[in-house]
Amino acid sequence: MKNPPSYAIASVDHALRLAVMLQVEGPLGVSDAAERLGVARSTAHRLLSMLAYRDFAVQRSDRRYAVGPVLAVGHSSDRSRTAHLRAAAMPWLAALMEEVQESANVQVLTGEHCRFVGAVECRQALRVGDREGMAFPAHKVSGGKVLLAELSTAELSALYSAERFADRPEELPNVASLRQELSWVRRRGYAINIEGAEKGVVGIGRPLRLGAERAEAAVCVSLPTVRFDDERVRVILGALTRAAVGIEADFVAQRPGGLSAPADA
Rank of each mutant, 00 (worst) to 15 (best):
Lys2Ala: 11
Pro5Glu: 07
Met50Pro: 00
Pro224Ala: 09
Arg36Glu: 02
Val252Ser: 07
Val39Met: 08
Ala162Gly: 08
Ala166Ile: 11
Gln124Phe: 13
Ala191Gly: 04
Ala176Ile: 09
Tyr7Phe: 15
Pro27His: 11
Leu182Thr: 03
Ala8Gly: 09
Ser152His: 10
Pro137Gly: 08
Phe56Ala: 02
Leu37Pro: 00
Ile204His: 01
Ser183Leu: 14
Pro262Asp: 05
Val108His: 03
Arg63Leu: 12
Ala176Cys: 04
Arg54Ile: 14
Arg255Trp: 08
Ala87Asp: 11
Gln101Ile: 10
Gly74Cys: 05
Val245Asn: 06
Gly196Glu: 09
Leu148Val: 08
Pro5Lys: 12
Glu248Val: 11
Glu155Cys: 07
Glu195Tyr: 05
Met50Ser: 05
Gln101His: 12
Leu18Ile: 12
Arg81Ser: 07
Arg81Thr: 07
Phe56Gly: 01
Arg123Pro: 03
Arg79Val: 11
Pro91Trp: 12
Ala191His: 01
Thr153His: 12
Arg123Tyr: 08
Ala253Ser: 05
Pro224Cys: 12
Ala149Leu: 04
Arg214Cys: 00
Arg115Phe: 05
Gly200Trp: 14
Arg41Met: 06
Ala191Arg: 00
Ser152Asp: 10
Cys220Trp: 09
His139Ala: 09
His113Val: 00
Val20Gln: 06
Leu208Phe: 01
Pro262Cys: 10
Pro91Arg: 08
Val245Leu: 13
Ile192Ser: 01
Ala15Pro: 02
Val202Asp: 00
Pro4Gln: 03
Thr43Lys: 10
Ile247Ser: 06
Ala265His: 13
Glu163Gln: 12
Leu223Tyr: 03
Val185Met: 03
Arg46Cys: 02
Ser142Ile: 01
Ala10Tyr: 14
Gly38Trp: 01
Val106Gln: 02
Ala72Val: 05
Gly118Trp: 04
Pro256Cys: 04
Leu71Pro: 04
Gly257Phe: 10
Arg17Asp: 02
Glu198Asn: 02
Gln107Met: 14
Lys199Tyr: 10
Ala154Phe: 08
Val67Asn: 01
Ala88Ser: 12
Val221Trp: 04
Gln107Glu: 03
Cys122Phe: 00
Ser161Asp: 12
Leu148Thr: 05
Arg255Ala: 10
Ala176Phe: 05
Leu51Val: 06
Ala197Leu: 08
His113Ala: 10
Leu96His: 07
Ala125Asp: 10
Met50Ile: 09
Asn193Ile: 07
Arg186Ile: 12
Thr110Lys: 15
Glu102Arg: 14
Arg64Asp: 00
Ala8Ile: 13
Leu48Trp: 08
Met50Trp: 10
Gly29Asn: 07
Gly205Cys: 11
Val73Ser: 12
Leu48Ile: 10
Arg115Gln: 11
Asp55Val: 07
Arg86Asn: 05
